[in-house]
Every structure is written in C-alpha cells, then in structure tokens.
Amino acid sequence: MLDLQAVSKHFGGVRAVDGVDLTVARGQILGLIGPNGSGKSTIVNLICGLFPLTSGRIVYNGADIADLPPHARVTMGIARTFQNIRLFGQLTVWQNLWVAQNSSEQRKQNFLKRWLGGSRSAREEIDRTLEFFDLAHKRDELAGNLAFGEQRRLEFARALSAKPALLLLDEPAAGMNAEEIDQLDGRIRRMRQDGITVLLIEHHVELVMSVADRIAVLNFGQKIAEGTPAAVQANPVVREAYLGTAAAA
C-alpha cells in the first residue's frame, strides 16, 4: 500500500532520514521504533507532505505522491496524529471533527447542506465518533479547554473522521497512563479489523510489540532492522542500538 523507496531528507548537513526503504502492506500495523532523533517523526512528516524529500520516492497505491501538497494526500486517504497534540483550540470539539470528515457520502451532498451543517447522516456519524471516544458530553466545548487525555482522544477521533485508508500515529501513547495505553491498544487493534492500515511510531515498546504485525527499527536516519516483533526483539543489532540501552537503563 505504501512504499518508501530510498527516501532521504537532509536538513543542511544533518541526515535526518538517509536512504530508508519501508513498505507498509495493506491492512497491516507497522511499528516504527528507534531512539530519539533517529528520524521517525521526519518520516511521518515526509509521508504526509509537510516537507519535500531530498531524494527518493513515496509510492502510495501505485502512484508517486512525493510532489503532492498535504491536502491532496489527505483526500487520498492518508491521515495522521501528532506527537505533541495539535488541535484547533478555538473551535468546538464538534467542529474539529466536522471539517476533517471526508466520507464519500459527504462529497455527494448538495452544496448548501454540505456547507451549512452537513447532512443528517454526516452529523450522526460525528456524534457516533464522539460517543465512541467518550467525548459526546464535550461536543460543544472548545477543543482548547479540554483536558489532556480528552485532547488525545479528540485528535484520534479527528484522524478517524477523515476515514483514512492509512493512518500515521506519531507517538499516540506519549503522556498516557497504563489504563489509557490499554484502551489505545484496543482501539488500534479494532482499526485493523476495520481495514485501516496503520504506521505506528511509538516509544512505548510494550505497546508496539503487542499490536504491530511487523516492526522496523531506525537509528541515525537509517533502517537497521525489520521483521516480526519477536525477530526484532531477538536481533542483536537492535538490542545494542535501542533495546539494549533501554534494558541497561
């Protein structure tokens, strides 16, 4: 589904991402791990189009999307969340989801309905999403006034409202407690059941090992290993670069 071919991104002399090949198969959860500064978040930013590539190709569903603007990639079904939560704090919870909503059904609606409040089914869909993420009671609250955990859930809800085929999760567990991580684990699994392909970037190794089908490991902008969770865990290179230091700490 998504194919990164020899992707590089250099910031001046810094090789944030250096010739990475990465393949995410349809319906799969690919975990991407690596120490701080290994280039994980840069890869997400490259996939959703926030920076131009230095070199390489990003192939999505058979087409090279490397030159498309971010909004065009979203309409192709790529959605993401942010490591440090980014919401529209001056808009209500409901409005945050409304604009993100990108269902084929909504595109069919007549002009007035689409621009003034959305169709009934579109509104109901938002309400359902809000309930699913336990945010229904905050529907008309400004997103900026939500508590941290609620903001995380809202960001997740917004990404799902876009009905993505490929979801990029950038450290979704950051700042969460054990119970919340457990819920997150469940939500990610159910997204796979719904046929959403997920690229999961995460520091929290347990979570990645638990949900990911395959894991790729980055270090200094290069991919140093890839395989099943068990294989990666057993890989001595990985242990040294990443898990080893974690174990020693």
């Binding site: 926030l50 971010p70 979203v74 529209f88 917004r158």
Partner: peptide, 11 residues
C-alpha cells in the same frame, strides 16, 4: 489558527 494542520484536514 494552524495553517499546516488545516492542510492536513484535506483543506
């Protein structure tokens, strides 16, 4: 509020 984020909503 956030031009980059708006772009990532498909706008």
């Amino acid at each position: 509020e956030d031009e980059t984020l708006a772009g990532l909503q498909g706008v």
